[in-house]
Design a protein around this nucleic acid. Structure first.
Lengths: 149, 149
DNA sequence: CTAGGTGCAAACTGTTTGCAACCCT
DNA sequence: AGGGTTGCAAACAGTTTGCACCTAG
């Protein structure tokens, strides 16, 4: 069942879209429901399958990509690139809180984590280099706790 | 002109390939020359263009990809994924030394940097999480010194 | 001679786009 | 009514693969 935060996110998302003068189309609604009910990262393919599997009318692939682009532009979801050439998307929290991921080489699982020390280190690098850094991505590859020997 | 390190790398690369019982094919040789003479990150497309532009016989696209895969498997080059869906490759140093990149959002330039503090932070995260981390990628997005306001 | 390497063209995969029908508001 | 939205199918771009020919050892 949806938690408080999920509902808040969905409401917030609908709000953002409405305020940018957009209609409330079916495809977008379905994606917002999906993202608000699960908080893992989806590929477009997974989204298509999930929506196709449900009782309701499936959503066209193009609409999925268009909705992902829109939600992403509005910073309602975040796009992850894990280096396999397949884009993944996950809900972004309104407060801008963010995390990074470790990919388990054994089972392929994605483990999210956040770490103030890492964020601090990145801030320091950008100061040392004298460059304005507007965003950053970190991906760790290794073994998750279940697969660890 | 090639520096000491570049020559060393090329020699080392040829050595690694020879010791794994491989013939010395033309395509591979051309790629090794390319990587040893320039130390920026190439896309497959750029490599194809560069080779096509030279006087010698161009190298087929398939061979380029096959050579890149081989060199990459042997850890002679490193594959970069910057999130635009285009793989880039750069020479890997034999001593395992590595760096990360900042992409300038204005001019698209790729700026390489290394930072012990960042490496340390990553080591600490993996300890804190209790996970074995075998590799990591960091990509910063921002503005390079030339484009900074 | 022969296993390994190469080039071409065709297949694949994830993503984008053109366009006609559709439906919020 | 009318512009935003959707779905289909076709187009795209980067990469991979099948296969016949070539070549280093």
């Amino acid at each position: 069942m949806p938690t408080q935060t999920d509902l808040e996110w969905a409401d917030y998302a609908r709000d953002v879209l409405r305020h940018s003068g957009r209609h409330r189309g079916a495809a977008r609604e379905r994606l917002i429901d999906l993202f608000s009910s699960w908080d893992c990262a989806f590929t477009a393919q997974q989204i298509e399958d999930l929506l196709r599997r449900s009782e309701e009318r499936p959503v066209g692939r193009a609409s999925i990509y268009r909705a992902l682009e829109l939600l992403s532009d509005q910073q309602l979801i975040t796009r992850l690139d894990l280096g396999d050439g397949i884009a993944r998307y996950e809900r972004a929290e309104p407060d801008g809180e963010h995390h990074h991921h470790l990919i388990c080489g054994e089972c392929g699982r994605l483990v999210a984590f956040d770490d103030p020390g890492l964020e601090r280190a990145i801030r320091r690098v950008s100061e040392r280099l004298g460059m304005r850094v507007s965003s950053h991505d970190v991906v760790l590859r290794g073994a998750c706790l279940d697969c660890e020997d």
